[in-house]
Nucleic acid binder design. Sequence first.
DNA 1: CCGAGATATTTCAAGCTTAAAATTTTTACG
DNA 2: CGTAAAAATTTTAAGCTTGAAATATCTCGG
Lengths: 176, 176
Amino acid sequence: MTLIAEQAAQNGVSTAAADASKERLRLWLKLLKATRLVEADLRERMRSQFITTLPRFDVMAALRRAPEGLRMSELSSALKVSNGNVTGIVDRLVSEELIVRTPVHNDRRAMIVRLTAKGCEEFDALAAAHESWVDGLFGGVGRDEARELGRALDRIAAEAAAHMEATREGRVNQDD
Amino acid sequence: MTLIAEQAAQNGVSTAAADASKERLRLWLKLLKATRLVEADLRERMRSQFITTLPRFDVMAALRRAPEGLRMSELSSALKVSNGNVTGIVDRLVSEELIVRTPVHNDRRAMIVRLTAKGCEEFDALAAAHESWVDGLFGGVGRDEARELGRALDRIAAEAAAHMEATREGRVNQDD
DNA sequence: CCGAGATATTTCAAGCTTAAAATTTTTACG
DNA sequence: CGTAAAAATTTTAAGCTTGAAATATCTCGG
């Protein structure tokens, strides 16, 4: 916000820039609210109907698409979560025999993680239920509307990813 | 998914219903991805520039709008998080003298939580930065587009809230 | 007044999440 | 070959989150 706009806002006078900024803030709050509500609903259904959690589901979904398995580092970058996080979730899934860790031949540092037959079965049941839950929750969104929404979300995601990338690479910016 | 649609899907034959379902699932994944990226970016900026976190910001924002303060239960229902969660966050904010807990006269069970002067100051600086960060991230979304996006998000949020409410009240449904 | 049930909050156990430090192994250069 | 830097993973400390159990207090009918 510019100095002039800020002073205007402090005086209760609105400017086009300040209005647009408030509107974007409201949009972000709506986005956050909708996402949290959907997540809470899905979490509750996973918990009560399948005795599992969304993070476990995410890990299993990534592995389902990789029949040969994934390295721990591939898994954490696919899910965009920290390495240590994946370690914990994988530990628990291994202890329930839903996935297996196998060492990599050429590289004794690395581990490959793969779904077991039991893990595949459980995931497929979970995934079918999950799709139907989402279908119900998003039923009120029309096809054209969904496409437009998707494009806007892609732009927002790209902007956030670009900013984080730039920050991580040490770029310095006056308003960071 | 109906039995026929499921068989069709298993045969690799697509149906209108199955297509729509997959499209809604993709929309949900995009929504989740965009929200998580924005949250990660905001979290990182809060952490590195203000040494604080989003949950703390949320608590302070709720209190900023309530000069008389809020009860712990009002706070947790405003933020839609569990009671125990708020207890922990408030404990930490109190230890930094950003908020204060005061007993309620008529009711020795209850506590009122309020921002201190220091808390107000810190929040206002934080909130200004937060608004400008969001403004930057959402700059690519046009005004009309934002309005339409907002309406769709409201519908999705309402659907999720309604389902959770119905579940909590013990309604039984075949596909829950 | 008293006790049962309701209400407000905290505590607890378990799991998720991150950033940073530690560990182990590999790679590549001198 | 030897070793320093890089890479893969795990560990750790701190905080967030939930649901459920525990505490403390209040309300209200008898």
